[in-house]
Amino acid sequence: MNVQWLTGLASSNAAALVTDRRVRVVTDSRYAQQALCLDPGIDVSVDRAVLSRAIASAAQDGAVSLGIEAESLTVAMFATLQAVATAQGMQLVGVSGVIEELRATKDKAEVDALTAASEASTAALRALLPTIEVGMTEIEVARRLELEMGRCGGEDRAFPSIVASGPNSAIPHHMPGSRRVEAGDFLKIDFGAMCRGYHADCTRTFIVAGTPDRRQSVVYDAVQASAAAARAALRPGIEVAELDRIARCVLADAGFAELFTHGLGHGVGLQIHESPLIAASAAGTIPEGAVVTIEPGVYLPGEFGVRIEDTCQVTASGVTVLTDFPRELTRIA
């Protein structure tokens, strides 16, 4: 994804070389035509051995050391490339998180794509809800939602949709199965569309064909309050751990601290999970221009779960919720 962000080329086999003299992308013949349509300021080389070719190009530019993304390589691959670099009189240096940190701040074109993905997502959910009926399987609901995302302008789903009914809603990342939706269930739907390579992420929880009982209402209200508190505190410069703490304290006051079992959120962009990570164990701050999720949840194993999630743009002038959809507990079917 870093190659795509740097150059605009979406390829399963590509490397980008950035020096003080030029930007070069190396890819194989399957992507040659797309590469030749990139910005004219980007040099293009076609070679299946993309990393070896990039190292050779750096040597031609007079580089004596070359940073290479450590997360992208196995130990064996790094050893092979180190030998190639040594033969060229260069040293390879493993680097981590440099491009990811830059990607955390979105420019206008990226925000436009994320907005389009979010709008396709929420439009699809609006179209789906009136069609849900008691007796439908989770898989059927998920596939209908993904069809609607395509009809509403999404180019693909951002990730496999999560549709979790009844006790399955207590599983944070449940994969849709054959369980049929029943009256009185909580139905948790975590989904998103992709537009121009950028991902939306949204979750809503609904009550099916009935009135929530007191326990369901209490949990839902606590999650809704937690999400609202976190969105209100979200701003450039806030520590990610502090933002997580704010959301978690609301749930703790309601007696659900131990049932919020994951981090509060994450960045979104060319990948569904990007920097910054918003969690108690994470370090760093929210940069201006970030687009992140806020997604507190409470999960009662064997009973039900609730999550409310939004994709939010963070600027100095405030927070814009891109996944604009009601958060009140809504009855469906």
Rank of each mutant, 00 (worst) to 15 (best):
G265K: 00
N13V: 01
A109H: 11
V26C: 05
H266K: 10
G197L: 02
I278W: 03
I246G: 08
G255L: 11
T323K: 01
R126A: 09
S11N: 07
P296K: 03
R214N: 12
T320K: 02
A247M: 09
P176Y: 04
A241H: 11
G302R: 09
G265D: 00
A333N: 07
D156N: 14
A124K: 04
I246K: 11
L251F: 03
T105G: 04
A227G: 07
L322M: 06
F191N: 14
I278Q: 05
D213A: 05
L251Y: 04
S96Q: 15
A120P: 02
R196G: 14
A230W: 00
A233K: 13
D43W: 05
C202V: 09
Q216D: 11
G177I: 12
T205A: 03
C249L: 14
I294R: 00
V240M: 04
Y299A: 10
E69D: 15
T74S: 15
S65K: 05
I246Q: 12
D47W: 01
I308T: 08
L36M: 11
E69A: 13
A79G: 12
P212C: 10
Y198H: 09
V163N: 06
L92N: 01
R126T: 13
A15N: 10
A241E: 13
S217W: 08
Q33H: 12
A14I: 00
V268L: 00
A252G: 14
L125C: 11
R204Y: 02
Q4F: 12
E328L: 07
P301T: 12
R179I: 10
L38Q: 07
A316L: 11
G302P: 11
C152E: 10
E71S: 13
R53F: 01
V181S: 10
A142H: 01
I238C: 10
G154W: 00
D28W: 07
S165Q: 03
G94K: 14
R103E: 14
T261H: 01
H173M: 12
T80E: 15
S29Y: 08
S45R: 11
T74C: 09
T323P: 02
S121H: 04
A282G: 08
I308N: 03
G284I: 01
L264C: 03
R48P: 14
A333Y: 00
I189R: 04
Q224F: 04
A193I: 06
E110L: 04
Y31A: 10
P160M: 09
E100Q: 15
Q224G: 07
V134Y: 06
L145G: 02
F256Y: 15
Q4S: 15
L251D: 07
L259N: 07
D28R: 09
G237Q: 14
A79F: 03
L251I: 11
I238H: 12
L73H: 08
A227K: 03
R103D: 10
L51R: 02
